[in-house]
Design a protein around this nucleic acid. Structure first.
Lengths: 232, 232
DNA sequence: CCAAAAGTGTTAATAGTACACCCATGA
DNA sequence: TCATGGGTGTACTATTAACACTTTTGG
C-alpha cells in the first residue's frame, strides 16, 4: 500500500464560446453578469467546475443554467491560465466551443442567479468583454476557421434543411472571405455528403432554392481517414 | 470600487510530452518517479504549477528541473481533468508537447528530487505509464500527426543539417506509414523552404547524401497564410 | 564487384481556379 | 416586367499518385 498522502483542492473554471448563425450573421452567446467581479459586464458563459463533475459535465451544466440550452456538443480548445487573469486570484479556465442551430433557440432562459440575461451577439461587432474573454473568443474563432476546412462542423450551425447558399454564406462568415459560388457548390456536392431534398423554399420572390440535408452516415464513412475538407 | 471578494487557491499541474528522433526512431522523454503516488513508475515529466508563474513558465521550469533541458518551445494541446485521474484528489493537468533535436541531448540531468532518472523511450513500445499519461501521450501523437501536415514542425526534431532521407524517415515515423521517395522529395523541394548545402555525408559506404537546412525565413514568408503543408 | 542508400522524370488522374449568363419566382 | 437570388459549364492550371532504374561510395 502507498502511504497516506495529503489531499488537494482545485479551483478552476470553464468558459464556453457558443456559435450560432442567423440571417447570414455569425453570432456568439453572451451573458450579462449579475455579480462581481465585472458585475453588469458582458461575458462568455462560464463558471467554476464542481469537485465531483468532469470538465465536460461542468461545461454542459453551466451552459444549461446560464442559457437554458441543453444537449450541445462541446469541444475543448484551449486553457487560459495567466497569473493575473482573474481579480480574485490565480484561476485557470478550460475553454470550450460549440456550434448550434440557432433557429428556435432564440429565447434564452438562464436560471442561474449569476446571470442577468443571455443573448446572441454578432461576432463582427463584439464589445469589450469581462476578464480575458475577448482573447478567449479570438482563439476560438481561430480554431474553428481551421477546423471547418477539414471537418464539416459548419453543418451544426445550420437547420436540418438548408440551401447551398446558406451553407456558402456560413463558410464566408467564418472564413471572413468571399468564395466562388460555382466552385463552392461543385466541391460540396462532390463529396457526396449532402442529400438533395424534394422540398424547395416557399414564398420567396425569386427562384426557390432546393433544400439539402447533411448526410452524417456518408460523412462518417468518407472521413474516417480525416481528409482535408476545404482548402484555404 | 468593487467590494472585497474572497481569494481562491488553485492547484493544478502540467505534463509534457517531449518528442525526439534518433536512428529513425521516434521517442519521447520519460522520467522515473521518486515519490508516491506511482513511486518508481515511469511517467511523463510534469508537476504542479506555482501560484505566481504562468503555465508556460511552469512547463519550462519543470522540464528543466526534471531533465536538464532548456529553451524549448512548448505548445499546449489539451487539458485533462477527469474526476479520478489523480489519487490525491481532483487535479487538472494542462498538457504540452515539444519537439527537440535529440542529438547531443542524450545525457539528461534531472535536479529535482522527485525524479530518479530521465530517459528517452521509443513511442512504438511504450510501457504502462503513471496516472493517465498513456492517454495524454496518445492525444499528443494525434495532434502532431495532424500538425506536421500543415506546419513544418518536423524540422524541430532534426539536427541543423539533415538529409532528405532523414526527413522522410521522420515523416514516416510520425505518420506511421510509408511515403513515396520521389514524390516526397519533389514536394519538399518545391516549397522552397529547404536550403541545399555544399556539404555531404562523410564516411558512409554508399553514395553520400546531400545535407539540407530548413530556411525559416522563407518559411515565414510563405506560410503566413497558413497553407496546407502535406496531404494525408 | 558487391551492397546499400542516393538520386532522378514522366505520365495520368484528380482537384482547384477563374469566369458570366440564363432561370424561376413574387410583387 | 423587374428585381432578386438560384442555378449551371468549360478551359486552364496545379497537384497528386504511381512507378523503376542509374549513380556513388566504401569495403
Amino acid at each position: 500500500m502507498e502511504p497516506e498522502l495529503p489531499k488537494f483542492e482545485s479551483v478552476f473554471s470553464i468558459d464556453c464560446v457558443i456559435f450560432g448563425f442567423e440571417d447570414g450573421v455569425l453570432k456568439i452567446l453572451l451573458i450579462e453578469r449579475n455579480d462581481p467581479p465585472f458585475k453588469d459586464w458582458w461575458a462568455l458563459p462560464g463558471y467554476f467546475v464542481d469537485r465531483d463533475e468532469s470538465i465536460e459535465e461542468a461545461a454542459k451544466r453551466i451552459l444549461y443554467t446560464f442559457t437554458g440550452l441543453r444537449d450541445i456538443f462541446l469541444e475543448q480548445f484551449y486553457t487560459f491560465g495567466d497569473v493575473d487573469r482573474h481579480p480574485q486570484g490565480r484561476l485557470i479556465t478550460v475553454a470550450y466551443y460549440a456550434m448550434i442551430q440557432l433557429n428556435g433557440k432564440k429565447d434564452l432562459k438562464p436560471t442561474s442567479p449569476f446571470v442577468k440575461k443571455a443573448f446572441w451577439h454578432p461576432v463582427s461587432d463584439l464589445p469589450k468583454l469581462a476578464f480575458d474573454h475577448t482573447q478567449i473568443f479570438e482563439k476560438s474563432l481561430q480554431k474553428i476557421k481551421r477546423k471547418i476546412t477539414y471537418r464539416p462542423i459548419a453543418f451544426e450551425l445550420l437547420p436540418e434543411k438548408f440551401t447551398l447558399t446558406q451553407l456558402q454564406n456560413l463558410y464566408e462568415a467564418i472564413l471572413n472571405k468571399k468564395l466562388d459560388k460555382r466552385n463552392f457548390r461543385k466541391k460540396m456536392l462532390n463529396y457526396g455528403i449532402l442529400k438533395e431534398l424534394d422540398e424547395k423554399q416557399q414564398g420567396v420572390s425569386y427562384r426557390a432554392a432546393t433544400y439539402y440535408k447533411f448526410d452524417r452516415r456518408k460523412y462518417n464513412k468518407l472521413f474516417q481517414k480525416e481528409l482535408s475538407f476545404i482548402k484555404e
